[in-house]
C-alpha cells in the first residue's frame, strides 16, 4: 500500500483498478466505501442513484461484469479488476442507447430518479435472456421501484427496446453468461 494513501478511522485506503465505462481507473478506496458511494461521492458519477442504500429499491443498479447488481450493497474494494458500466457509459457519444431512447419515447419515467437504475436493470435483464413475455419482464424488473408509478410505460419501453438492446450486447452478454457456461457438464 502507498505510504501516502489517505487514512480514516485508523484504516488506510486500498488501491483498486476498475474498468469504468471503458476507461481504466486506478483508485484508492476505504474498505467501507460502497460501490455506490465510490461512484457518487468520489468520482462524481451521480447518474447512479441512492434511493434506499439497502438493496430494496434498485435505483443504484449498475452492470458489474455485465450483470446487474445493487451497487449500494457491495464494497468497492471487493471489485479490484472488475468491469463496471453505469448509466453514464451506456450511450454511444451523443447517440442514446436503444433502451434510453425507448424510455424517452414511451415516457417511462416522471421524476427520473429511478430511471438510470431501471435502464441499467433492463439492459442487464436482456443480457440474462430469461424474460420472454410481458409477465416475465414485469417480474424480472420488480427489483426496481418507481414511486411515480410509471410501470406500464417502463414495460412498453423495455418491450420495444429488447431486440435492439440484444444486438448491442455482444461482449457483455458473453461475460454475463460465463458463470452459467463454465459449469455446464
Amino acid at each position: 500500500m502507498n505510504q501516502n494513501s489517505p487514512t480514516a478511522g485508523g484504516i488506510i485506503a486500498c488501491p483498486i483498478t476498475i474498468e469504468l465505462n471503458g476507461q481504466t481507473r486506478q483508485l484508492e478506496v476505504f474498505p467501507w466505501t460502497t460501490l455506490l458511494d465510490l461512484l457518487r461521492e468520489q468520482l462524481a458519477l451521480t447518474g447512479t442513484k441512492k434511493g434506499c442504500d439497502h438493496g430494496q429499491c434498485g435505483a443504484c443498479t449498475v452492470l458489474l461484469n455485465g450483470r446487474r447488481i445493487n451497487s449500494c450493497l457491495t464494497l468497492a474494494v471487493m471489485h479490484d479488476g472488475a468491469e463496471l458500466t453505469t448509466i453514464e457509459g451506456l450511450a454511444d457519444g451523443d447517440s442514446l442507447h436503444p433502451m434510453q431512447a425507448a424510455f424517452v419515447k414511451h415516457d417511462a419515467f416522471q421524476c427520473g430518479y429511478c430511471t438510470p437504475g431501471q435502464i441499467c436493470s433492463a439492459v442487464g435483464m436482456v443480457s440474462e435472456g430469461r424474460a420472454q413475455s410481458l409477465g416475465e419482464i414485469r417480474e424480472q424488473m420488480s427489483g426496481n421501484l418507481c414511486r411515480c408509478g410509471a410501470y406500464p410505460n417502463i414495460l412498453a419501453a423495455i418491450e420495444e427496446a429488447m431486440p435492439e438492446t440484444r444486438k448491442t450486447l455482444g461482449a457483455v452478454q458473453t461475460d454475463a453468461q460465463k458463470g452459467v457456461r463454465e459449469v455446464q457438464p
Binding site: R67, R68, L73, G124, S142, N144
Partner: peptide
C-alpha cells in the same frame, strides 16, 4: 426470493 440484482450478487 429478492430481486434479480440481489440474486446476481
Amino acid at each position: 426470493g429478492a430481486s434479480a440484482q440481489l440474486r446476481n450478487m
